[in-house]
Amino acid sequence: MKDFLELVKARQSDRAYDMTRDVEPEKLERVLEAARLAPSACNAQPWKFVAITDKELSKEVGKATAGLGMNKFAKDAPVQILVVEESANISSLLGGKVKDKHFPLIDVGIAAAHITLAAESEGLGSCILGWFDENKIKSLTGIPAGKRLLLVITIGYSAKPKRTKLRKEKSKVISFNKY
């Protein structure tokens, strides 16, 4: 458990990448395999991961994440992983209706966590982005108009040293047996 907690402590949202270093294909394959193996409600696996490794396309996708002064760094990330919502299976959909939850959104969040932790374990930085021009990225990458692009995750070698994590105190976010 100590190794896992050290990995979690080390993982951060990197917003500057070393543009002189490419992500090795075997490392990216392992990161994507971690995403593929993520758990999902009723094993629906309601996702498709589109790895953008072409330098020019990655730069264009990165530019499509910038807006209102946000995410300017994304154009410098060597890899962008696009997380697209796919149809859930009938069990997940029916369960979601009964419980008033859209399980694919939860499932994608779990897969994103797998991606970022796997990247960290490979010595790579990452950042999960939810602010982007969805239609522009779909146009650039051929994602069908009827699909939802939920997240863009940048991957690359961090250009900055690790920061100290700022988190709420345990007593503010954890309790036992009662709220």
Rank of each mutant, 00 (worst) to 15 (best):
E122V: 15
P25H: 05
K136H: 10
K63Y: 00
A64E: 00
V79M: 03
D76C: 07
K72I: 06
P46V: 05
A159D: 10
L117S: 09
I52P: 01
K48C: 09
L7N: 09
P46C: 04
D133K: 14
F132K: 05
A119N: 07
K72E: 06
G96N: 03
I155Y: 01
E26S: 15
W47S: 08
S175F: 04
R167W: 00
T154N: 08
C42D: 02
L28Q: 04
C42G: 11
I155S: 04
S87Y: 03
A145F: 07
D14C: 14
I143M: 05
P25D: 03
K172G: 07
S91C: 06
S175W: 02
D107Q: 05
E26P: 13
E60L: 13
E86K: 15
S91E: 01
A44V: 04
V173S: 06
A34Y: 02
F176L: 10
A88E: 02
C42N: 06
V108N: 03
I174H: 04
V152K: 00
K168N: 07
V152A: 03
I153Y: 01
E29F: 12
W131Y: 15
G125H: 02
R148T: 14
G62S: 05
D18I: 10
V83I: 15
P161N: 03
L129E: 02
V61H: 00
G156N: 04
N43R: 10
L105C: 09
D54V: 15
K59P: 06
E122R: 12
F103L: 11
G130V: 13
G62Q: 00
M70W: 05
L140W: 03
P39H: 01
T65A: 08
P144S: 06
P144K: 05
L166S: 13
M70A: 14
E134Y: 04
V84S: 05
S158T: 13
L124W: 05
E86T: 15
K172H: 05
G109F: 03
V83M: 08
A119P: 12
W47C: 10
I52Y: 00
M19N: 08
G130A: 12
D22F: 07
Q12P: 12
S139E: 13
N135P: 15
F49K: 10
Y17I: 14
D14A: 11
V98H: 03
Y179K: 09
E122G: 14
S139Y: 02
I110D: 02
L94T: 13
G69S: 06
L68F: 10
A112K: 00
A88N: 00
D133S: 15
A88D: 01
L166P: 04
